[in-house]
Simulated assay, not measured.
Amino acid sequence: MRLLQRTWTMPLDPRTHPGSLTLPAPAKLNLLLRILGRRPDGYHELQTLFQLLDFGDELRFAPRDDSMIAVEVDGAPGHDQIPLQDNLVYRAAMILRNECGCSRGANIHLRKRLPMGGGIGGGSSDAATTLLGLNRLWRCNLSIDRLAELGRKLGADVPVFVRGHTAWAEGIGEALVPVDTEKRHYLVVVPGCSVSTAAVFQHPRLTRDSGAITLPHLRDGRLDPRWLEEYSTNDCQALVEDLYPQVRAAREWLQQFAQAQLTGTGACVFAAFDSSQEAQQVLRQLPTGWKGFVAAGVNTSPTHERLANAAP
């Protein structure tokens, strides 16, 4: 099988690619993250709340007449240097094709907006959108449950994007309970460094003994914001800020305007605001050298909404 991965600057023209499917790959925030202990298999027992956002990457899938899976990347300097076999989009396509027992090919164009090593789920979301998109394009007709199982093989965060709902998570992040959170607007600051998730979880100084908390009774699936305020902490934050001073600087700057914290293992930090206007006003004051974006928290993934409205 031939393999192809390159960086390009011109987007696919849907007029010359009939049958193409374009889907978002949303970012996520960890509104809280507790590490309960290390498992015998090396993974960690977690409790976290995944908040989906209405901002992220974008993928376009177009069918091919051969069996090639071509991955083209726009907007991510250095991304094309990743070996194709390590690219989560390519790996997701291959694992789906092997599951379906087919030999179909696809052109996949990935437009990157989310930073690597940011703790906002860029790679995991791209993989999930690939599973969902090619499941539709190739007419594999796999269930969401089966796609989530395949996604877990690619990463612990992939299932929440496959299932497509803001969720409380336990285990290694795959045991999910969908919840609805109140509408907030988030300013996410990217401090200009990339954090290795593996390095953080392997570090001897990482907190691994937080006590488990109980998800409160949900009325109509909605999470009480007062409970969330009480438990909004991240067990990775102290360590990451020691290892990456840029992360501490970004959080302390954002803390001037609202309660700020790390998402995932970082490097991004975020704060919640009542309106997009408030968040945008703070974004305009962002120090030189940092990047950021404003996004609304959503309970249903934009990927699932787009699929629901796409032609079958």
Rank of each mutant, 00 (worst) to 15 (best):
L243V: 01
H44C: 05
P83S: 08
A70G: 10
N141E: 15
G19F: 13
I144W: 04
T48K: 03
L142C: 11
A199M: 10
D74R: 15
Y90V: 03
E58I: 09
G101P: 07
R208K: 14
L88C: 02
D57W: 05
P11F: 14
I213H: 06
G19S: 14
F293M: 04
K28L: 05
G75H: 10
D220P: 02
A212K: 12
A25N: 01
V179R: 06
L187D: 06
P225I: 10
P26M: 07
N98V: 01
L215H: 00
D224N: 15
P40M: 14
V71A: 11
S301C: 01
P216R: 07
N141S: 14
V282W: 07
I120Y: 02
G117A: 09
Y90T: 06
N30H: 06
V158I: 12
L262G: 06
S232F: 02
D57M: 07
Y90M: 13
Q51E: 06
H44Q: 09
S125C: 06
R104V: 04
T22W: 11
A267L: 03
L132P: 05
V177R: 15
D242R: 13
E278L: 13
A250D: 07
R34C: 02
A128F: 05
W168S: 07
T16R: 14
A175F: 10
E174V: 04
P178V: 02
R38S: 08
L32I: 04
G42K: 09
G292K: 10
Q237R: 02
D274V: 04
E229D: 13
Q5R: 15
F270K: 03
Q259K: 13
L53K: 02
H17N: 09
F61W: 08
L176K: 02
R15N: 09
R146S: 14
E170K: 07
P312V: 09
I82Q: 13
N234C: 01
M1Q: 12
P115H: 13
L110T: 00
A25W: 01
L176S: 06
V158Y: 11
A76H: 08
